[in-house]
Each structure stands twice: as C-alpha cells, then as structure tokens.
Amino acid sequence: MELTVNQVTKTYGDLTAVNALSFHVSQGEIFALLGPNGAGKSSLVRMLTGFTHPDDGQISLNLAGQFFSHIPSQALGYLPEDRGLYPEKSVLKNLVYFARLHGMSKADAQQEATQWLEKFDLSDRLDEQLKSLSKGNQQKVQLISAVIHNPKWVILDEPFSGLDPVNQEKVVEFLTELKAKGMTVILSAHQMAMVEKLADRMLLMNLGEAVFYGSLHDIRQQAATNAVLKVTYDTIDRLKIQSSDHGLTIEQLTEESLQVLLQPSQSINDVLASLTTFGNIKSVHSQSLDLHQLYLHAISKHKEEKQQRPAKEKQYA
C-alpha cells in the first residue's frame, strides 16, 4: 500500500500552486509536509483528499489491490487546516456523528469516542457543548474526530497549532500511537522539533516545488550546509574577513565569535586555515544543523535560485 505522486502540477489562474511534484509515501510511516505559508502544502493535501484534481501528473494509491487517484473517504481520516465542528452540539454528539458518517455503528462510535476522550483527559466533558471547551481542548476533539473510525490513512494539517507544550507532547504520543496501530500519517506542521522527533520521512516544499525529500539523514546529505562551526577568538580582524577571498559563509555572533556554515564540498583543513587568518583562535565547536536551521537555509537558498531562474531562462532564450 503506497501513495505515489508523480509530476503533479496544480494551477489557479496565473498561480502555480504545485509544480511538477513527485514523491511517495509508504504504508505505516509518518510523512511530514514542510514549507512556509503559500508553499503549496494545502493545495497538495486537497489533491490527496480528492477535493481537487491535478491539472497535470498523477496521484496513485494502491489500496488492497485497488488503485485510486486520491485517498478514498472510507480510508481517510482528515484534520483540515480550517478547523471546525458543530459548536452548539455536545462533544460526544460531534464525534459520534462524524464516526457514523464514516460507517461506524452508533454503539461502536460511542464506545470509541469515550475511549479517545479518556486518553485526552476529556471524559468528564463529553456531554458539554463543544463551544464551552477551551481552544486547546476543542483541537483535541477535532483530532479525535479525524481518527475515531480507525482509518488507514490520516492527513493532519497543523495538528500542533493552538496547543501548549504539554498538549503538544500529548499529540506526539497520539501520533506515535496511530503509527503503532498501522496507520499512515501525512502531517503538515511548522513545529520543526516535533517533526524531527516524529517523522520518518519528509518533503520540504517552497513555492510549489520540492526543496528536500527523504529522511532527516537524507536531507542532511542533500543540504548544501549540514553543520556549523562556532569559533571564538581573542580579537577578530574584521578587515581580513571583509577583504580576503576565503569562500566561507560567515556570520559574526559577538565581538569575539563567528559562526561558519560548513558545506560538504569544503575541506575542514582549508576552512580552519582560512579561519586562523582572522585572529588567534581560542576555541572551535562544531554541531550538526537541526531541522529548523536546515529548513531556514534551504528556503532562503531556494528563493534566491528561483529569483535567478527567470534571468537565466531569458539569457538562454
């Protein structure tokens, strides 16, 4: 059971929301969709759920030998970006209604809802109107409504938004539990620390295109910058930094310290040789970039490339 997205493009008027995007999601994994606002994640999700269809390319899902052009509703649990249930109805009525729409019997739906609410410490509030709950608790009910029917595929758009750190950890546990149950989770989020902890593989998107794709390890390999050196000096000779052609990406942190982004192609000896010309080194610390830093560098680099692209295309023309 695998979801394959092959060269998918979606345009709205003049805007290309998704541009020739290809990736696949394997059964039972947690797959993260990352990218800034407007990257095309929601457009992609809408195609995966079947709300819209690609203008070009194909989406294919093999579900027990049957092929679908999107995740069919009977196999899908969905937490949309635009949250919403029925605020006037009770927590239980909301959950049972959505579970029954997905084909569960009333008794099973009630039992399942009660169990999930217990897990989220909401069992004493099942008869209360949804609107009487705090925003965070409403978010939990919404999450339950997406998975109450035990779907094979779950798409969660921003599951951590609106939650405090304690509840964010609860959602991490929740997602781990879904994975343990054999569900495949596609998740879109901005909380990089959570994604780093949870996701087996990820797709980083920007302006409708794939920037990175794979596991965190793969992404580190793909990244032009995969580590930083923090260097402390007695005194830094700024003129030398500005004048010499050292080929390093340098950020001055304080009067005595620098941060240098290491690129896989660069030799550490050459980098250190250049760094010694700026002053007397007191200490050097190296560290791998976390997902958050990789994300920021990749997005800014992709933006630069994209801006240069029309100029190059013009030159070739």
Binding site: T49, F51, S73, L76, G77, Y78, P80, E81, D82, R83, G84, L85, Y86, P87, F98, L101, H102, Q142, S145, A146
Partner: peptide, 16 residues
C-alpha cells in the same frame, strides 16, 4: 453557519 464554522472540509472527507 457550517461554512463559517469551517466544518465543510471535515464533512467532505467523509461524504460526497
């Protein structure tokens, strides 16, 4: 009301 309560996409994921 359903549109303002943003319940539409959740419903679309269950029913046509």
């Amino acid at each position: 009301g359903e549109k303002q309560q943003r319940v539409t996409e959740q419903l679309y994921s269950c029913i046509s």
